[in-house]
């Protein structure tokens, strides 16, 4: 047995485990380690991939726009892509924990391990794999992002004003020519404290603030942009599922930040037209009435 109990202050000397163990046995031990770790790794990877694919849609709410579903897809894909790497790290840690337990005597250190100071193959392949992963993540992100930058020729203009501590929406008078050639008309400007959007009509939000910075976050549309005083922040989306959700303020804005939210609905365009036709008279609570039967 090599001595590991030399607590001499200045001249610690240890003997290497390698000098004791025959080279053949050494190789065999190594293979055992690799196999054990691989089992743990495979198990964890499968677990991670399944979690990414099946847990994500359960954890996240139903989304009402392509942008919202892109967020869910991204979480799915990134979890699946990261699973093998994360699982490898966990596997080595877990395996080393299981495998070393019996050798650990609390009061004195166990024999030294093999003096592995690096492994060109391991480091090299790690670098290559992590670089490829990053390239993939970036490619995925840029593609998704580019697909969200499409500007529709004509979109329903909604002016969004954040202020301490309320969102207000105004629909300027306009006629929107829809992709199919139909038109949608807002005959007279309407102010509202709820957000109602016609389904399948491209929307352009023009977001600004009266005072401090707020975060305009129509949660289930998957878009978000700050309302900055003196700035017009443009956000685009096309809601394509009926439903209700909330607009929440995502940037702390003072005393009543927590209360800064609005009820939002995606409604059939006939309902939208009927609602908007009432002009200002229809602005209060009406959205709740109209969309009562939706979803």
């Amino acid at each position: 047995m090599s001595s590991n109990h030399n607590h001499g202050i200045h001249h610690a000397t240890y003997q290497s485990i390698d000098e004791e163990v025959a080279p053949g046995l050494h190789k065999q031990l190594h293979r055992q380690h690799v196999r054990g770790t691989l089992y743990v790794w495979a198990l964890l990877t499968v677990g991670g991939i399944l979690a990414g694919l099946y847990l994500t849609p359960i954890l996240m709410p139903h989304m009402n726009s392509p942008e919202g579903r892109a967020a869910i897809e991204t979480v799915k894909v990134f979890t699946v892509a990261a699973a093998p790497v994360a699982a490898l790290v966990c596997a080595v840690a877990i395996y080393s924990l299981i495998n070393s337990r019996h050798r650990s005597h609390l009061d004195s250190p166990p024999v030294d391990g093999p003096p592995l100071r690096g492994n060109a193959l391991a480091s090299g392949s790690w670098l290559v794999v992590s670089t490829l992963l990053v390239v993939f993540l970036l490619f995925w992100g840029l593609t998704e992002w580019a697909s969200q930058q499409v500007v529709h020729a004509d979109a329903l203009q909604v002016n969004v004003t954040g202020q301490q501590w309320l969102w207000t929406y105004s629909y300027p008078a306009q006629t929107v020519i829809l992709p199919g050639g139909k038109t949608l008309t807002v005959p007279k400007a309407v102010d509202a404290t709820t957000l109602d959007l016609p389904i399948n009509v491209p929307v352009q939000f023009n977001v600004t603030s009266k005072d401090v910075t707020h975060g305009f976050w129509p949660t289930q549309l998957g878009i978000q942009g700050d309302a900055n005083p003196g700035v017009n922040d443009v956000l685009r989306t096309t809601p394509d599922h009926l439903g209700k959700f909330q607009v929440r303020c995502s940037q702390i804005c003072g005393l009543y930040h927590a209360y800064m939210y609005t009820q939002a609905s995606v409604i059939p365009d006939s309902a939208f037209t009927a609602w908007i036709a009432q002009g200002d008279a229809g602005r209060v609570l009406t959205s709740a009435k109209i969309t009562g039967g939706v979803r």
Partner: peptide
């Protein structure tokens, strides 16, 4: 800023 400092920020 915007007249919402001082008393408006005090609950």
């Amino acid at each position: 800023v915007a007249g919402f400092g001082a008393v408006m920020g005090a609950y």
